[in-house]
Amino acid sequence: MSKTAVFIWLSNVLADTSGHIAFKRAATIESDDEWHRWKAMLSSPPIWIGIFCFVLELFLWLALVSLVPLSLAALLAAFNIASVVLAAKWVYRETISPIRLAGIVCIVIGVALGSTGL
């Protein structure tokens, strides 16, 4: 895998994780009713940071699949699942139960195995 591909993959991980974290921040905005909640969410920076991250991610995906086979890209993308869980622990102090930790370890091993020799 070329250095560019690695860079694009890591950027993709960063964009996806940041997007999820930003959306979560936006989703926790509370209001009296659903209409005002959406209004407040749409006028808050986190939701736009989230949208920006996901648009960026789409283009990073386009770049990644043009550099590596789709199968490898799909395997690499699974890393995002683990990174979001870890980031949520770091940012929102979400707990990682032993079973979740086992899930993260499996995914990391899976991604490492899937990308070996390439």
Partner: peptide, 28 residues
């Protein structure tokens, strides 16, 4: 595309990881 043995094992690991995470998600 040619799928290597490592890739297939990797994907099995990932699926297992997703199962674990979803179990953890149900509990939480």
């Amino acid at each position: 595309e040619h799928l290597t043995g490592a890739q297939i094992s990797g994907s099995i690991c990932i699926v297992l990881g997703i199962v674990f995470l979803s179990l953890g998600e149900s509990a939480s």
